[in-house]
Design a protein around this nucleic acid. Sequence first.
DNA 1: ATGCAATTATTGATCGAACGATCAAGTTTA
DNA 2: TAAACTTGATCGTTCGATCAATAATTGCAT
Lengths: 178, 178
Amino acid sequence: MADPNRRRKIVDAARRVFAEHGYDKASIKLIAQEAQLKSSALIYWYFENKEALLAEILKVGVPLAQLGDVTPAFFEVPPEELLPRLLRMHLTAINDEEIEKIVRIFVPETIRNDSFQARFGEIVSPVFELIRYYMEMQIANGRFRPHGQVPLAWNSWPLSVRISLMRKVNMSKTYSTK
Amino acid sequence: MADPNRRRKIVDAARRVFAEHGYDKASIKLIAQEAQLKSSALIYWYFENKEALLAEILKVGVPLAQLGDVTPAFFEVPPEELLPRLLRMHLTAINDEEIEKIVRIFVPETIRNDSFQARFGEIVSPVFELIRYYMEMQIANGRFRPHGQVPLAWNSWPLSVRISLMRKVNMSKTYSTK
DNA sequence: ATGCAATTATTGATCGAACGATCAAGTTTA
DNA sequence: TAAACTTGATCGTTCGATCAATAATTGCAT
Protein backbone atom coordinates (compact mmCIF):
# COMPACT_ATOMS: atom_id res chain seq x y z
CA MET A 1 0.00 0.00 0.00
CA ALA A 2 2.64 2.49 1.12
CA ASP A 3 0.40 5.37 2.04
CA PRO A 4 2.65 8.46 2.09
CA ASN A 5 0.52 9.89 4.93
CA ARG A 6 0.79 6.80 7.10
CA ARG A 7 2.93 8.48 9.71
CA ARG A 8 0.68 11.50 9.97
CA LYS A 9 -2.46 9.37 10.13
CA ILE A 10 -0.99 7.38 13.00
CA VAL A 11 -0.20 10.57 14.90
CA ASP A 12 -3.71 11.91 14.27
CA ALA A 13 -5.27 8.67 15.47
CA ALA A 14 -3.04 8.59 18.52
CA ARG A 15 -4.01 12.14 19.44
CA ARG A 16 -7.69 11.25 19.28
CA VAL A 17 -7.35 8.02 21.24
CA PHE A 18 -5.01 9.54 23.84
CA ALA A 19 -7.37 12.48 24.33
CA GLU A 20 -10.39 10.24 24.79
CA HIS A 21 -8.96 7.42 26.91
CA GLY A 22 -5.80 8.84 28.44
CA TYR A 23 -2.26 7.72 27.77
CA ASP A 24 -2.29 4.45 29.69
CA LYS A 25 -5.67 3.18 28.55
CA ALA A 26 -5.04 4.08 24.94
CA SER A 27 -3.56 0.80 23.79
CA ILE A 28 -1.36 0.47 20.73
CA LYS A 29 -3.92 -1.84 19.17
CA LEU A 30 -6.70 0.68 19.69
CA ILE A 31 -4.60 3.40 18.07
CA ALA A 32 -3.83 1.07 15.18
CA GLN A 33 -7.51 0.36 14.78
CA GLU A 34 -8.35 4.07 14.82
CA ALA A 35 -5.68 4.64 12.17
CA GLN A 36 -7.18 1.78 10.14
CA LEU A 37 -4.05 -0.33 10.19
CA LYS A 38 -4.31 -4.06 9.71
CA SER A 39 -1.51 -4.69 12.16
CA SER A 40 -0.55 -2.74 15.26
CA ALA A 41 3.04 -3.78 14.72
CA LEU A 42 3.20 -1.28 11.90
CA ILE A 43 3.25 1.53 14.44
CA TYR A 44 6.63 0.27 15.60
CA TRP A 45 8.06 0.77 12.13
CA TYR A 46 7.26 4.47 12.24
CA PHE A 47 7.85 5.06 15.96
CA GLU A 48 10.28 3.58 18.42
CA ASN A 49 7.68 3.07 21.11
CA LYS A 50 4.47 4.42 22.61
CA GLU A 51 6.25 7.28 24.33
CA ALA A 52 7.81 8.46 21.06
CA LEU A 53 4.29 8.64 19.66
CA LEU A 54 3.36 10.94 22.50
CA ALA A 55 6.42 13.11 21.95
CA GLU A 56 5.56 13.41 18.27
CA ILE A 57 2.10 14.72 19.13
CA LEU A 58 3.64 17.51 21.15
CA LYS A 59 6.27 18.20 18.52
CA VAL A 60 3.99 18.58 15.52
CA GLY A 61 1.02 19.97 17.41
CA VAL A 62 2.50 22.90 19.27
CA PRO A 63 3.82 25.32 16.68
CA LEU A 64 6.33 27.17 18.78
CA ALA A 65 7.78 28.32 15.47
CA GLN A 66 5.41 31.22 15.94
CA LEU A 67 7.81 32.40 18.59
CA GLY A 68 10.65 32.31 16.09
CA ASP A 69 9.78 35.62 14.51
CA VAL A 70 10.18 37.60 17.70
CA THR A 71 12.22 40.65 16.77
CA PRO A 72 13.49 43.51 18.93
CA ALA A 73 10.46 45.43 17.68
CA PHE A 74 8.30 42.95 19.65
CA PHE A 75 9.51 44.46 22.89
CA GLU A 76 8.64 47.98 21.72
CA VAL A 77 4.95 47.22 21.26
CA PRO A 78 3.11 48.93 24.12
CA PRO A 79 1.39 46.66 26.66
CA GLU A 80 -2.10 47.97 25.92
CA GLU A 81 -1.67 46.64 22.39
CA LEU A 82 0.47 43.53 22.97
CA LEU A 83 -1.33 42.02 25.94
CA PRO A 84 -4.75 41.90 24.24
CA ARG A 85 -3.02 40.49 21.17
CA LEU A 86 -1.45 37.72 23.26
CA LEU A 87 -4.78 37.00 24.90
CA ARG A 88 -6.43 36.75 21.52
CA MET A 89 -3.72 34.34 20.36
CA HIS A 90 -4.25 32.30 23.49
CA LEU A 91 -8.01 32.09 23.04
CA THR A 92 -7.60 31.15 19.40
CA ALA A 93 -5.16 28.39 20.30
CA ILE A 94 -7.27 27.04 23.14
CA ASN A 95 -10.26 26.88 20.81
CA ASP A 96 -8.31 24.94 18.23
CA GLU A 97 -9.48 21.34 18.34
CA GLU A 98 -6.02 19.92 17.93
CA ILE A 99 -4.52 22.06 20.67
CA GLU A 100 -7.43 21.27 22.95
CA LYS A 101 -6.86 17.55 22.50
CA ILE A 102 -3.19 17.96 23.31
CA VAL A 103 -4.04 19.81 26.49
CA ARG A 104 -6.55 17.13 27.36
CA ILE A 105 -3.89 14.49 26.91
CA PHE A 106 -1.19 16.10 28.97
CA VAL A 107 -2.84 18.01 31.78
CA PRO A 108 -4.55 15.03 33.41
CA GLU A 109 -1.27 13.12 33.37
CA THR A 110 0.56 15.93 35.11
CA ILE A 111 -1.57 15.31 38.19
CA ARG A 112 0.44 12.23 39.07
CA ASN A 113 3.18 11.80 36.48
CA ASP A 114 6.19 14.05 36.98
CA SER A 115 7.81 13.19 33.65
CA PHE A 116 4.70 14.34 31.83
CA GLN A 117 4.83 17.51 33.88
CA ALA A 118 8.41 18.16 32.85
CA ARG A 119 7.77 17.43 29.19
CA PHE A 120 4.71 19.66 29.01
CA GLY A 121 6.57 22.34 30.93
CA GLU A 122 9.32 22.36 28.32
CA ILE A 123 6.74 23.47 25.80
CA VAL A 124 4.94 25.99 27.97
CA SER A 125 7.88 27.59 29.75
CA PRO A 126 9.48 29.40 26.78
CA VAL A 127 6.23 31.27 26.17
CA PHE A 128 6.16 32.49 29.73
CA GLU A 129 9.83 33.31 29.68
CA LEU A 130 9.18 35.52 26.69
CA ILE A 131 6.33 37.28 28.45
CA ARG A 132 8.41 37.61 31.58
CA TYR A 133 11.24 39.19 29.59
CA TYR A 134 8.78 41.51 27.86
CA MET A 135 7.43 42.64 31.21
CA GLU A 136 10.93 43.27 32.50
CA MET A 137 11.61 45.41 29.45
CA GLN A 138 8.48 47.42 30.12
CA ILE A 139 9.64 47.97 33.67
CA ALA A 140 13.07 48.98 32.41
CA ASN A 141 11.66 51.60 30.09
CA GLY A 142 9.27 52.90 32.71
CA ARG A 143 5.97 51.76 31.28
CA PHE A 144 5.36 49.48 34.28
CA ARG A 145 6.28 49.87 37.91
CA PRO A 146 8.57 47.15 39.39
CA HIS A 147 6.82 44.30 41.13
CA GLY A 148 7.60 41.30 43.34
CA GLN A 149 8.84 38.04 41.87
CA VAL A 150 6.09 35.94 40.34
CA PRO A 151 6.63 32.20 40.05
CA LEU A 152 6.28 31.33 36.38
CA ALA A 153 7.62 27.79 36.23
CA TRP A 154 4.94 25.42 35.05
CA ASN A 155 5.38 23.01 37.93
CA SER A 156 4.90 25.83 40.43
CA TRP A 157 1.41 26.62 39.19
CA PRO A 158 -1.37 25.67 41.55
CA LEU A 159 -2.98 22.42 40.52
CA SER A 160 -6.32 24.13 40.11
CA VAL A 161 -4.90 26.49 37.51
CA ARG A 162 -3.23 23.73 35.57
CA ILE A 163 -6.37 21.69 35.61
CA SER A 164 -8.67 24.53 34.66
CA LEU A 165 -6.92 24.41 31.31
CA MET A 166 -8.86 21.24 30.70
CA ARG A 167 -12.24 22.88 30.66
CA LYS A 168 -14.05 22.78 27.37
CA VAL A 169 -14.77 26.46 26.83
CA ASN A 170 -16.93 27.92 24.13
CA MET A 171 -15.27 31.27 23.64
CA SER A 172 -16.96 32.09 20.37
CA LYS A 173 -19.86 33.93 21.94
CA THR A 174 -18.30 35.46 24.97
CA TYR A 175 -15.06 36.70 23.55
CA SER A 176 -15.80 37.34 19.90
CA THR A 177 -13.70 40.26 18.76
CA LYS A 178 -16.23 41.29 16.15
CA MET B 1 -2.26 -14.31 63.20
CA ALA B 2 -5.86 -13.08 62.97
CA ASP B 3 -5.36 -9.38 63.41
CA PRO B 4 -8.76 -7.96 64.40
CA ASN B 5 -7.93 -4.74 62.50
CA ARG B 6 -6.98 -6.49 59.27
CA ARG B 7 -9.95 -5.21 57.36
CA ARG B 8 -9.44 -1.62 58.47
CA LYS B 9 -5.72 -1.74 57.78
CA ILE B 10 -6.38 -2.94 54.26
CA VAL B 11 -8.81 -0.08 53.66
CA ASP B 12 -6.30 2.42 55.06
CA ALA B 13 -3.55 1.06 52.86
CA ALA B 14 -5.79 1.07 49.82
CA ARG B 15 -6.76 4.69 50.44
CA ARG B 16 -3.11 5.72 50.57
CA VAL B 17 -2.09 3.73 47.50
CA PHE B 18 -5.15 4.78 45.49
CA ALA B 19 -4.53 8.42 46.37
CA GLU B 20 -0.89 8.28 45.35
CA HIS B 21 -1.02 6.18 42.19
CA GLY B 22 -4.63 6.38 41.05
CA TYR B 23 -7.12 3.52 40.93
CA ASP B 24 -5.75 1.67 37.92
CA LYS B 25 -2.08 1.86 38.76
CA ALA B 26 -2.65 0.92 42.38
CA SER B 27 -2.24 -2.83 42.07
CA ILE B 28 -3.65 -5.31 44.53
CA LYS B 29 -0.14 -6.52 45.31
CA LEU B 30 1.01 -2.97 46.05
CA ILE B 31 -1.91 -2.46 48.39
CA ALA B 32 -1.17 -5.77 50.08
CA GLN B 33 2.44 -4.71 50.51
CA GLU B 34 1.40 -1.35 51.97
CA ALA B 35 -0.89 -3.18 54.38
CA GLN B 36 2.00 -5.49 55.27
CA LEU B 37 0.25 -8.65 54.17
CA LYS B 38 2.28 -11.68 53.21
CA SER B 39 -0.11 -12.57 50.43
CA SER B 40 -2.21 -10.32 48.25
CA ALA B 41 -4.79 -13.07 48.01
CA LEU B 42 -5.79 -12.24 51.56
CA ILE B 43 -7.46 -9.08 50.32
CA TYR B 44 -9.95 -11.27 48.47
CA TRP B 45 -11.04 -12.87 51.68
CA TYR B 46 -12.11 -9.52 53.10
CA PHE B 47 -13.32 -7.93 49.86
CA GLU B 48 -15.00 -9.36 46.79
CA ASN B 49 -12.78 -7.48 44.35
CA LYS B 50 -10.81 -4.30 43.80
CA GLU B 51 -13.92 -2.24 43.13
CA ALA B 52 -15.48 -3.29 46.44
CA LEU B 53 -12.35 -1.98 48.12
CA LEU B 54 -12.95 1.36 46.48
CA ALA B 55 -16.58 1.39 47.53
CA GLU B 56 -15.58 0.65 51.11
CA ILE B 57 -13.27 3.68 51.13
CA LEU B 58 -16.16 5.92 50.20
CA LYS B 59 -18.50 4.20 52.64
CA VAL B 60 -16.36 4.48 55.76
CA GLY B 61 -14.62 7.71 54.80
CA VAL B 62 -17.49 10.05 54.04
CA PRO B 63 -19.53 10.37 57.21
CA LEU B 64 -22.79 11.49 55.72
CA ALA B 65 -24.25 10.56 59.09
CA GLN B 66 -23.52 14.17 59.92
CA LEU B 67 -26.44 15.02 57.71
CA GLY B 68 -28.64 12.74 59.75
CA ASP B 69 -29.19 15.22 62.54
CA VAL B 70 -30.77 17.83 60.32
CA THR B 71 -33.85 19.02 62.15
CA PRO B 72 -36.52 21.50 61.13
CA ALA B 73 -34.60 24.04 63.21
CA PHE B 74 -31.79 23.77 60.64
CA PHE B 75 -33.92 25.60 58.11
CA GLU B 76 -34.66 28.40 60.57
CA VAL B 77 -31.02 29.37 61.01
CA PRO B 78 -30.52 32.65 59.14
CA PRO B 79 -28.22 32.54 56.08
CA GLU B 80 -25.69 34.98 57.52
CA GLU B 81 -25.07 32.42 60.26
CA LEU B 82 -25.58 29.14 58.42
CA LEU B 83 -23.61 29.84 55.25
CA PRO B 84 -20.37 30.70 57.07
CA ARG B 85 -20.92 27.64 59.24
CA LEU B 86 -21.26 25.44 56.17
CA LEU B 87 -18.14 26.99 54.66
CA ARG B 88 -16.25 26.31 57.85
CA MET B 89 -17.44 22.69 57.81
CA HIS B 90 -16.33 22.42 54.20
CA LEU B 91 -12.89 23.84 54.89
CA THR B 92 -12.46 21.56 57.88
CA ALA B 93 -13.42 18.52 55.83
CA ILE B 94 -11.22 19.46 52.89
CA ASN B 95 -8.30 19.87 55.25
CA ASP B 96 -8.86 16.47 56.79
CA GLU B 97 -6.16 14.17 55.45
CA GLU B 98 -8.49 11.24 54.99
CA ILE B 99 -11.11 13.26 53.13
CA GLU B 100 -8.45 14.88 51.00
CA LYS B 101 -7.15 11.48 49.93
CA ILE B 102 -10.64 10.37 49.02
CA VAL B 103 -11.12 13.45 46.89
CA ARG B 104 -7.77 12.85 45.26
CA ILE B 105 -8.80 9.31 44.46
CA PHE B 106 -12.14 10.09 42.92
CA VAL B 107 -11.92 13.45 41.22
CA PRO B 108 -9.19 12.54 38.73
CA GLU B 109 -11.15 9.44 37.73
CA THR B 110 -14.28 11.47 37.03
CA ILE B 111 -12.47 13.19 34.17
CA ARG B 112 -12.83 10.14 31.98
CA ASN B 113 -14.72 7.49 33.94
CA ASP B 114 -18.48 7.99 34.05
CA SER B 115 -19.11 5.25 36.62
CA PHE B 116 -16.75 6.96 39.03
CA GLN B 117 -18.58 10.18 38.35
CA ALA B 118 -21.90 8.59 39.20
CA ARG B 119 -20.60 6.95 42.36
CA PHE B 120 -18.96 10.11 43.65
CA GLY B 121 -22.04 12.09 42.70
CA GLU B 122 -24.19 9.84 44.88
CA ILE B 123 -22.16 11.02 47.84
CA VAL B 124 -21.98 14.68 46.94
CA SER B 125 -25.48 15.24 45.63
CA PRO B 126 -27.41 14.87 48.91
CA VAL B 127 -25.35 17.66 50.42
CA PHE B 128 -26.24 19.98 47.59
CA GLU B 129 -29.83 18.90 47.64
CA LEU B 130 -29.94 19.89 51.30
CA ILE B 131 -28.45 23.29 50.55
CA ARG B 132 -30.79 23.73 47.62
CA TYR B 133 -33.76 22.96 49.83
CA TYR B 134 -32.49 25.34 52.49
CA MET B 135 -32.17 28.10 49.90
CA GLU B 136 -35.69 27.45 48.67
CA MET B 137 -36.93 27.75 52.23
CA GLN B 138 -35.18 31.08 52.60
CA ILE B 139 -36.86 32.29 49.43
CA ALA B 140 -40.17 31.03 50.70
CA ASN B 141 -39.89 32.94 53.94
CA GLY B 142 -38.71 36.07 52.18
CA ARG B 143 -35.10 36.16 53.34
CA PHE B 144 -33.86 35.70 49.76
CA ARG B 145 -35.23 36.88 46.45
CA PRO B 146 -36.19 34.17 43.92
CA HIS B 147 -33.51 33.30 41.41
CA GLY B 148 -33.06 31.33 38.17
CA GLN B 149 -32.49 27.60 38.22
CA VAL B 150 -28.95 26.66 39.10
CA PRO B 151 -27.65 23.29 37.93
CA LEU B 152 -26.55 21.41 41.00
CA ALA B 153 -26.04 17.89 39.68
CA TRP B 154 -22.44 16.85 40.14
CA ASN B 155 -21.97 15.85 36.52
CA SER B 156 -23.19 19.24 35.34
CA TRP B 157 -20.42 21.07 37.14
CA PRO B 158 -17.79 22.61 34.88
CA LEU B 159 -14.73 20.41 34.74
CA SER B 160 -12.60 23.20 36.13
CA VAL B 161 -14.69 23.36 39.27
CA ARG B 162 -14.63 19.65 39.80
CA ILE B 163 -10.91 19.56 39.31
CA SER B 164 -10.15 22.50 41.51
CA LEU B 165 -11.26 20.29 44.37
CA MET B 166 -8.01 18.44 43.89
CA ARG B 167 -5.79 21.30 44.84
CA LYS B 168 -3.72 20.80 47.94
CA VAL B 169 -4.70 23.87 49.90
CA ASN B 170 -3.15 25.04 53.12
CA MET B 171 -6.10 26.76 54.70
CA SER B 172 -4.62 27.08 58.15
CA LYS B 173 -3.05 30.47 57.56
CA THR B 174 -5.43 32.05 55.12
CA TYR B 175 -8.73 30.98 56.56
CA SER B 176 -8.00 30.46 60.24
CA THR B 177 -11.08 31.32 62.26
CA LYS B 178 -8.80 32.27 65.14
C1' DA C 1 12.33 -0.93 -21.01
C1' DT C 2 14.04 -5.06 -18.31
C1' DG C 3 15.82 -7.66 -14.68
C1' DC C 4 17.20 -7.77 -10.09
C1' DA C 5 19.12 -6.77 -5.82
C1' DA C 6 18.48 -3.55 -2.00
C1' DT C 7 15.58 -0.91 0.59
C1' DT C 8 11.25 0.17 2.49
C1' DA C 9 6.92 -1.24 4.19
C1' DT C 10 3.43 -4.59 6.15
C1' DT C 11 1.73 -8.61 8.44
C1' DG C 12 0.42 -12.30 11.87
C1' DA C 13 2.44 -14.81 15.42
C1' DT C 14 4.43 -14.52 19.64
C1' DC C 15 7.18 -12.90 23.63
C1' DG C 16 7.63 -11.63 28.68
C1' DA C 17 5.70 -8.94 32.20
C1' DA C 18 1.94 -7.26 34.98
C1' DC C 19 -2.58 -7.42 36.31
C1' DG C 20 -7.05 -8.98 38.84
C1' DA C 21 -8.73 -12.97 40.39
C1' DT C 22 -9.13 -18.04 41.84
C1' DC C 23 -7.92 -22.18 44.12
C1' DA C 24 -6.38 -25.97 46.90
C1' DA C 25 -3.83 -26.60 50.74
C1' DG C 26 -2.58 -25.15 54.81
C1' DT C 27 -2.84 -22.80 59.78
C1' DT C 28 -5.15 -20.69 63.57
C1' DT C 29 -9.07 -19.88 66.41
C1' DA C 30 -13.60 -20.82 68.66
C1' DT D 1 -14.38 -30.79 64.78
C1' DA D 2 -15.97 -26.82 62.35
C1' DA D 3 -15.35 -22.35 61.12
C1' DA D 4 -12.40 -18.52 60.33
C1' DC D 5 -8.33 -17.07 58.35
C1' DT D 6 -3.77 -17.29 55.58
C1' DT D 7 -0.66 -18.71 52.02
C1' DG D 8 1.90 -19.67 47.56
C1' DA D 9 0.93 -21.31 43.18
C1' DT D 10 -1.46 -20.45 39.21
C1' DC D 11 -5.10 -19.03 35.98
C1' DG D 12 -6.63 -16.12 31.93
C1' DT D 13 -6.19 -11.70 29.94
C1' DT D 14 -4.13 -7.58 28.38
C1' DC D 15 -0.37 -4.85 27.42
C1' DG D 16 3.89 -2.95 24.97
C1' DA D 17 7.13 -4.72 22.22
C1' DT D 18 9.76 -8.03 19.08
C1' DC D 19 10.48 -10.96 15.23
C1' DA D 20 10.71 -13.68 11.13
C1' DA D 21 7.98 -13.79 6.93
C1' DT D 22 6.63 -11.71 3.12
C1' DA D 23 5.11 -7.84 0.00
C1' DA D 24 5.76 -3.52 -2.27
C1' DT D 25 8.75 -0.02 -3.96
C1' DT D 26 13.04 1.98 -5.47
C1' DG D 27 17.68 2.44 -7.57
C1' DC D 28 20.59 0.90 -11.00
C1' DA D 29 23.21 -1.82 -14.43
C1' DT D 30 22.22 -3.65 -18.69
